[in-house]
Design a protein around this nucleic acid. Sequence first.
RNA 1: GCGAAAGUGGCGGAAUUGGCAGACGCGCCAGACUUAGGAUCUGGUACCGAAAGGUGUGGGGGUUCGAGUCCCCCCUUUCGCACCA
Length: 847
Amino acid sequence: MDEKYFPEQIETKWQRAWAEGGVFQTKTDDPREKFYCLEMLPYPSGFLHMGHVRNYAIGDALAWFKRLQGFNVLHPIGWDSFGQPAEQAAIKRGVNPRDWTENNIAHMRGQLQRLGISYDWSREIAAHRPDYYKWDQWFFLKMLERGLAYKKTSQVNWCPKEETVLSNEQSSGGICWRCSTPVEKRDLEQWFLRITDYAEQLVADIKQIEDGWPDKVLKRQSDWVGRSEGAFIDFAVKDSDRKIRVFTTRIDTIYGANAIVMSPEHPLLNELLAGSALKTDVDAFAQKVRAQRAAGREEEEKEGLNTGVLAINPFSGEILPVWVANYVLMEYGTGAVMSVPGHDERDFEFAQKYSLPIRQVIAPVTHDQLTAEPMPTTAGDASAEMKHSFTEYGVLINSGEWGGKLSEVAIREMAAYAKEHGFGEAAVTYRIRDWGVSRQRFWGAPVPVIYCEKDGMVPVPYNQLPVVLPDNAAFTGTGESPLAGVKEFVNTNCPNCNGPARRDTDTMDTFVDSSWYFFRYCDPRNDAQPFDPEIVQQWTPVDQYIGGDSHAVMHLIYTRFWNKFMRDIGLVQSDEPVKRLLTQGMVTNRVEGTDEWKAMSKSLGNGVDPDEMITAFGADATRLFVLFAAPVENELRWSESGIEGAVRFLRRVYTMVWRWQERLATATAPTGAMEFSPEARTLRRKTHQTIAKITSDFEQLHLNTSVAALMELFNQLADFNADPARASEADVFAVREALEVLVIMLAPFTPHVAEEMWQGLGHPGGLLREVPRWPVADPELAQREELEIPIQVNGKLRSRVIASPDVSEDELRASALADERVRALTDGHEVVKVIVVPRRLVNVVIR
RNA sequence: GCGAAAGUGGCGGAAUUGGCAGACGCGCCAGACUUAGGAUCUGGUACCGAAAGGUGUGGGGGUUCGAGUCCCCCCUUUCGCACCA
């Protein structure tokens, strides 16, 4: 150790020692219990930002903690290296996307190493390399074989700025997930993955992970899948053998239906309107709605058109008009609904606008009515004007033989009745749509499919994988896949007939790459399969995953889907890929000239460069500040003075260790029982309390309070204020114990300086050479010798008494009542009662 | 509009889950050492008050011996979803 704390020297020294010793390389065949600690892999933009630093500092703290506890920890990193920015760079600056990407990776790898994150670099992977994306293609073919990958023409989300298709997840909220541009709709032929086949499991299996994932993520996923229980009902078309099928969750309201409303895109319309004078009007209306939607204008006022077609309510026999309207979506349910204005807000609005009849068929039920017999069947006047729709459950009225039943009951029984009579059935629908994975981009994994004039669409045979991306292409930025312009790539021979054929020129969504990457880490160099299932079985599921919540319904739902698919083809055994998930908060900074705190970004000019921080304060202090400044899931507001505080703390600890180094090195091992002074006992108590506190904090990733506890322990040590040269054997023992605990528990936060100080304390081997090192609290030593019990009078703090921890209730009551200040207050009053909370508090109630 | 979460000093945040509100840090104030200090060290720092004492966890009510914590109403902020039948 040097006398002074020089972060740069210490950090370089230990980074080299770790690399040379292969300290963080993990072996699969290790008898110790495994722990898989994973952070979301970065896109190699070229520069680490503070959000990355936070993400990896959290993960690294946990990885160190688990290693020190004796776990065999897998802590890998890789690169999500396919995607848009490489292609933008190619268009704007004429660079080769591959070179650009590799350069960025090299630079960011250096930054991560400078931060000292304890990755097993021997497992590094990158999505853009053929030995990785070969397996993307392999999975695609497996899905194709099982009918889970398919091609269809449909209206897809189109980002006009990036000129590519987006999945529904990537255009959630009607804006592009990357550039926030409003998305448009386009008709294109695209590849889709049948995530809808797994919709039920994606909801049901939430039960398996609900203890380990944040509620808000699970809620969003559950909403996104949008499971909805209801019924399909067929309405026969009058004077036709056609039926219009609707989906409803409220079959109990069917007597209140005043119309059938269809989506203008409904395919049945053509037939229903054949020969109708209104056909041209309906077509024109459909065109108009289409234009509205293509422009992304969802907030339009409700509009509709009566088609003149009539349908028959199968329950009441009533004849209903069939309308088309802009508020009915083709993508959900059956593309047609029964309109029940009395009990649905949208239908109510629509009925008001077009003066359609509104009829009440559900009456509110009060608690008293629930127990009353019989239920009213005609409560309320059917023709009475309703001012709002009533959307709650209640009791059916004006509903023929069903009147008087409760909604819950009617929903069940009416669906069964419909099924019995062949005009419907109970059904479950989902909001989630299949995952569109085609991208009209160059920088991605090519879709491994060939089109032959004679044999049609032919999958690339497995032994011809990977379909390698060409070295370069013309980046015109026109929106067509650049691969289409690369003749050597496109033109190929049919694997079946060897005749001339063309390759698919689209590439896959980069979310395919990230759906299974952490399985590859377990067996990263396997060239016979994506990974060895047995090896993966030893490591997965991931014990702790850490990343931003922006991926709640993108990456995190895709990877769950992928895991289930891999399970179904026998590659993995678990239903779920990740046991615990932490969504860390954003790192924000003040926007100059304003009072607003926003996520750091280049365009706002409020970014902070991690490299500059490392240079100025050291990697340890940067990491310590980031972990200390806020709870991991909260927003973290950047503060330069906060990071200075972190350096100050480290310097104090370092100096303390340096001061004691010599004495500790020459101290003889304690012989026999030691007599500890009260101060030394207080220090030891704090030491053991801190061990207990931090060990439990780590289980919940309460890292900010762990750091606070370390500071408290240090403050106690400083208060102890023993002189190294003159301290007694017992004092030296207490100091050594405190310092060693402090240094070991600092390692997850500030590993470099912790290693340096550990060495300074006389341990040449390095913190991870002697395992396990994490201290265990002695509850007896952590126990207080005497307690200061607050005494309240009528709930207000008035005094305190000193008591031993095993004081009886009676003794405590007596000493509270004997207390001078309490007596002054109780004098002349009646003591009504005395509440004694053992070891906690006494409250004297007087009148 | 619907849904969820959250409101604690000047700031970030603690509070063993109903029991001493404000741990720890930042900032600020005072002092020491200094030619100097945006370094370091020591002390102080919720608010009102000279003090005794009183008041305080967005506001109002309630339960309780006791409420930041539980219940009801309201306000504000943030996030998510936005015609999902």
